[in-house]
Design a protein around this nucleic acid. Structure first.
Lengths: 345, 345
DNA sequence: TCGTTTTTCTAGAACGATTTAGAAGAACGA
DNA sequence: TCGTTCTTCTAAATCGTTCTAGAAAAACGA
């Protein structure tokens, strides 16, 4: 049955196309009897309801919001933190009969124009941990697509749902200071190390705004400590593992390792285990996010309400009743067994 | 600048809209000089390229494929198995400049019509572990959207990329039989237990076709064993944990527990650890999928090439050169330390 | 030089719906 | 009975492209 459209149905029933459209979208605009007759005829003709593209064009609503991820999709999903965010977002999306459009941000050919960000039919975009200044953000702005970021940007008119990165990290920093740590390594996500060879970075090279802020928070709360920044690659278990290996096998071991995400911290935990190091005694380990696995592993971490973050982003994008455009979510230091006093030497 | 369209640009440059369209889509249809002039003017006017919806309508291609997940999205993504599938699919999607549209499948009001499946603008759909007979599948069929399932369906004209569930499970069953196990508990995903209270089920109540087939495979290879089916909720670590707790704390402990997914098996592993039970010695534990964490945990499992499965689904949906519509992927029993001989008594 | 092909561009009709403004008829109050 | 308000339905414009067919100009071969 090729080409069964609104018009076909309208003709078959003997009404105008508008009425058929109303039968689907505004049931109170026509009598129940007629509506039922229309729906029945539609069924009979094998008409599956208004075409999505046509509706999107005419009404200006795509029925989908984009989710922008940095890096490859695989990395994004391997972090339960990302999954939690997505789950919260999906919950709201579902409520508004909206789908989620996954937009992997391959570093290549963003500028090319033939990329998802340029093409996608979306009503809004959730920017998940994408560094400020990324070309994709400009494209979105150009297209006039409302975007909500999970990071606080500098522009006052940008929407975001974020945490106070500096304060959150400072909480952890104070905890470490109290425990007497002065030699600290911070494990960060970084593209430079993606090849497999861990690298040591300066603060300027870190890149991701949120990482940078967290490090600043640590510095602020640990003015007397020596902070080294190391990356084993993109945000993943394996990167934390590699980064920690690099640090643990080097001459000057720190007394504490802070992963800027729990998955990285858990990777570091693995490296410690292999070397027979007990977290909290031989070396202090801390993470960020408080993903489910963190509590199982006894990892000290900074909890952020990730699912709520996803929900909030969804509401800002989809719920017209929500007018607040910038939301600061609470964080909480969760102290577990992986952190302990710095060993005297 | 509201309403900058193809026409606006065309007028500004002094050419026809068709030409501007060609500048974007068919660069060889016009002189380079003109094309560059058009692109420059577009930039100047703040025109962000052809509108996605309009293009979708006119060309009949949405530029996106839907991904249907059963249950709540959160459960879906907490399983690395799902993530692997998605990664494979995303790889192919990227190659064909197509986006992935995640479609949350609320169990409620699917029939209502105001759901994502009905509304979404997609060219095809990947059906990931959605039980046959689900209303969403019918909606897709009605809309004439090609769909590829990860489960073998009964209809001969349905496309799928699957494994031989029965045989795969039978491989594992033979292994267990050889080890002398006769008291076996199978942990399954089930909505009934989603509340938190584990339940014991009959085969008829299992629901998901693939789960059912796997159990049949086990039965086939373990004709003399007593198989009990238990669920601790939806497919997740926590469900496996709860299900195993229920089983381990009951009067008649089995000698082997089989999780129908690795995440559930790993949850069960946790329950065993807490109770001081060593897998492979005190109790045999096995899973399904062979996710990365399985090897780290020494879990005996049935490997399936999940990323390839995702890729294959993507190719069937997007690559016109691929004509094969039904693909059986290989599986392999991976024996690790979590399985051992049944204790004599 | 004169057809013929190739290149470059255009006019105008789709694509399939929604929206706006308003008509026709029914129901209502006085 | 008559004007007024609802209810129910419709005509026509519009959303922003891409497509088909073909015109005009340029290039080509002999």
């Amino acid at each position: 049955m090729p080409g069964v459209t609104l018009k076909t149905v309208a003709k078959a029933v003997g009404v105008s196309p508008s009425t058929v459209s109303n039968a689907y979208n505004k049931p109170d605009q026509l009598s129940t009897a007629l509506r039922e007759r229309i729906l029945a005829t539609a069924q009979e003709l094998g008409y599956a309801g208004p075409d999505a593209s046509a509706r999107a064009l005419r009404s200006g609503k795509a029925g989908a919001v984009g989710v922008l991820f940095t890096d490859k999709l695989a990395y994004a999903f391997s972090d339960p933190y990302a999954v939690g965010f997505l789950a919260g977002l999906a919950e709201v999306a579902e409520e508004f009969a909206t789908s989620l459009l996954l937009m992997p941000l391959s570093s290549t050919d963003i500028a090319g124009g033939s990329n998802a960000v340029q093409q996608a039919a979306i009503d809004g975009a959730a920017i998940f941990c994408v560094p400020g200044g990324h070309p994709a953000l400009e494209i979105l702005a150009n297209r006039g697509i409302p975007a909500v970021s999970t990071d606080r940007g500098d522009h006052p008119d940008l929407s975001w749902v974020a945490i106070d990165e500096v304060e959150a990290a400072a909480q952890l920093g104070e905890h470490l200071t109290r425990l007497g740590h002065r030699e600290v390594v911070v494990l960060v996500d970084n593209a430079q190390a993606a090849g497999g060879q861990p690298v040591e970075l300066t603060l300027d090279e870190v890149g991701y705004t949120d990482c940078e802020l967290r490090i600043r928070g640590l510095q602020k709360a640990m003015p007397d400590a020596r902070l080294r920044i190391v990356s084993g690659g993109h945000n993943a278990f394996a990167s934390g593992l590699r980064g920690a290996e690099f640090v643990l096998d080097s001459q000057n071991r720190p007394t504490a390792i802070v992963g800027l995400s729990d998955v990285q911290a858990l990777g570091a935990l693995e490296a410690m285990k292999v070397r027979g190091l007990t977290p909290g005694r031989d070396l202090t380990l801390a993470g960020f996010d408080d993903i489910p696995a963190a509590s199982a592993a006894g990892l000290t971490t900074v909890r952020q309400p990730i699912k709520d973050k996803g929900r909030a982003v969804g509401r800002i994008l989809l719920d017209p009743a929500v007018t607040e455009r910038q939301l600061l979510m609470p964080t909480q230091l969760i102290v577990r067994s992986s952190s302990g006093p710095a060993p005297k030497h």
